[in-house]
Nucleic acid binder design. Structure first.
Lengths: 164, 164
DNA sequence: CACAATTAAGTTGTGCACAATCGAATCACC
DNA sequence: GGTGATTCGATTGTGCACAACTTAATTGTG
């Protein structure tokens, strides 16, 4: 019943492990990313934030008011993603967007009182997320380091592949 | 460690490392997932496939024709994602959708000749992806295992949190 | 000063993820 | 055999990611 009839004549031996590993790692990373998203969706529901919106708020809480440009640099997101996202945060009353006086091309994202206050209610979030992973801090730190390394290498490879 | 001027009165001691780790791991996973997507975008361009479309084709190449339902189980995706995706594959001439005779609720996704042939051109993809990661197969296998474990734990936690 | 190049946001269009909902087919149970 | 529950898929609506393009402000150079 598991046996769907193989239409191809390709024996398993023709596809070595490392060929299949690729599928595994892309499956796994994709699935892990979405699983994380799912946990954040549940945990952030009370705050009325999505996962990317929470990331933006984290940066603002930590760094203070920032232009959209710098927000994008911290999060590696472009204006096509950030513009509507920040507008939704503004509609929710958490931030205001203000044209800079010195450089009128720039829009500064400023926390409102409500946005600042939300930080208090968000304090429980990290603890709940860490608990949900079932990993201890050392394991998380190790995984994070590997993922960061992977990201750097992949970014460089994508640039090289696009250029070459 | 506190390079930025803290506007809050919260001393660093009140926010232990593991509180900040959360942000790191969510940043890292998010970034790694998008970086992977970027590499696949470049590598799959020639084939005219997106990353999720490639995942669907991988399943079909390996398992043969499948109903949408089982496709979703393999990929952990629901019909809201798969229906339009499969239609785009059909529009590209790679698959056909056929209502099952035994159970008319079910739609079977069948590879066309063109869809089957595409597998040959896709053979180079895994090698290029593995190369782009800069990891050797053992490291990839280890990372994959951790991510799978993480996904399982997170899925369970999301269900538990939603229920409780 | 004038004008080309650059930069910051925003807009448009495509595609993915997922919740909620619906219609049709099937199944279970009386 | 009829009726309620379940299953499959499709659809709708919201939000994110990113490429390509537009607009407006700024900078650099003659």
């Amino acid at each position: 019943m598991t046996a769907t009839t193989r239409t191809t004549d390709t024996p398993a031996a023709a596809e070595p492990d490392w060929l299949r590993l690729d599928r595994q790692i892309c499956f796994s990373l994709h699935a892990a990313s979405r699983a994380f998203n799912g946990v954040y969706r549940v945990v952030l529901k009370d705050l009325g934030l999505t996962y990317p919106q929470y990331l933006v708020m984290l940066v603002l809480w930590e760094r203070g008011d920032l232009p959209v440009k710098q927000l994008g640099e911290h999060l590696r997101l472009d204006s096509g993603t950030l513009s509507p996202l920040v507008k939704r945060l503004e509609a929710a009353g958490l931030v205001r967007r203000e044209r800079s006086a010195e450089d009128e091309r720039s829009v500064r994202v400023r926390l409102t009182g409500e946005g600042t206050t939300l930080r208090e209610r968000a304090r429980e979030v990290p603890r709940r997320i860490v608990a949900a992973t079932g990993f201890d801090p050392a394991e998380i730190a190790d995984l994070r380091d590997r993922l960061d390394q992977l990201t750097d290498t992949l970014d460089a490879a994508a640039v090289a592949a696009a250029a070459g």
